[in-house]
Design a protein around this nucleic acid. Sequence first.
DNA 1: TATTGACTCTTACGTTACGTAAGACTTTAA
DNA 2: TTAAAGTCTTACGTAACGTAAGAGTCAATA
Lengths: 249, 249
Amino acid sequence: MGMFVKEVANLVGISVRTLHHYDDIGLLSPDQTSEAGYRLYSNENLEMLQQILFFKELGFPLKKIKEIITDPTFNKREALELHREMLLDKRKRLDTMIATLNKTIKHTKGEIFMSNKEKFEGFNFNSNPFEEEARKRYGDQAIDESNKKIGRMSPTEQKELGESMNNIYRKLANLRHESPDTKKSQAAIEEWYHLLNKMGSYSLEAFKGLGQLYVDDERFTKNIDQFGEGLSIFMSKAMAFYADSRMKE
Amino acid sequence: MGMFVKEVANLVGISVRTLHHYDDIGLLSPDQTSEAGYRLYSNENLEMLQQILFFKELGFPLKKIKEIITDPTFNKREALELHREMLLDKRKRLDTMIATLNKTIKHTKGEIFMSNKEKFEGFNFNSNPFEEEARKRYGDQAIDESNKKIGRMSPTEQKELGESMNNIYRKLANLRHESPDTKKSQAAIEEWYHLLNKMGSYSLEAFKGLGQLYVDDERFTKNIDQFGEGLSIFMSKAMAFYADSRMKE
DNA sequence: TATTGACTCTTACGTTACGTAAGACTTTAA
DNA sequence: TTAAAGTCTTACGTAACGTAAGAGTCAATA
């Protein structure tokens, strides 16, 4: 009982060397070995391998995978549910890419116009595929995620949008002594949300995290409070309220 | 006019280093450089970059990408069409993986049984993602594709199916003096087709290619003709007829 | 029973596609 | 004019294997 390396390799479509490698780094070592020292993979080994391959498909580095699956709190079922979410996300990105491709084909035919930004929709998934969803459950906090997004805006984009941003900042500054959950405040913060989504895609969660950053990270605090003292705190609250109320829908 | 490295990097979601690298290996060198030697990317450069990223998404190594796009016969539009096909294929695989995942979740709950083979459906895309579709247009012929599939059957699988295979071989050997397109012959060859699809997925095209191999490659010819002289030729014809008639449907 | 062919093992260097860091120059905003 | 941010080249580091060599195992065959 137990399968030899090549059988496993054939079954799952990977190389023998890969299995050796996984053994070498302690990611997946077979339960048993034969008399002659041949690796014998059990059914449990195979199921673990399946999990590993799911993680890999989603872009996790092997080191991280090892950390995750050897963590005593690792829950197999939970991981599978996460895999599903992430795979669905990946499919969305793929669909976006296909849409981009179709547009591009039309574009080469001269039928439509395409902005440079549009040409790369679907690729531009926020940096690492895994870093995105993974933080939610494994490691770190989701906060510096939004931090990064800000850092990735290009100078030209920043210029293009700088004006609009200033306008909204001023509008919010004028409201900052009201409560953050009035209709006016929420309408203004919604503008802010839409503006941000023009340059990167912000989930409501990320939006809320960003708001948190406004009070946690003084680089933001300083910047924002130039438009009026206490604006950062006000925005942070308004953003949280906006995100929470919309997430209930 | 022209974008700096970081602008491009931000736009498409890759690193500056990556762009440097592509320049180093001659995959994508900017049209212009500034006085100070800064790289300046034109719109055409961006479009080429888009193509490169499509190829990359599909698993092509950079070296191969370079070959392809510097080939004088390279046709941009044709490439885009190919990209679309391949992306659709990729989505299919992803869907298969998601289905596998759903099954696995049920399996962990004990609701259903799952064979080892089922556990890896979607991963087991036939070896290289790119080698598959790519051969159709770029390089080589599709023939040795089926060759590989045969080579990848594991010993145990071969044993399991060896008996059934022999039965079909014998059945076909008895028919080999009839015409390959009679109902009997076609029914037998259909059994053969279904049997093969138990162990790997054969498109009708690949099936036909395999049949061709039976007469082209003497390793096959010898083996098959053990069951009766001329069987390989007979099977080859029958397989071609079967594939052609079913492809018209 | 000897041999052959297909697997297996370990060891180890090679490769791809960048990451990361260092040191120096440029450009822009303050 | 000085700081901050961006850019350059050079170069070593890294992840995830690929590939090759030399040697032992195992089953089937001559």
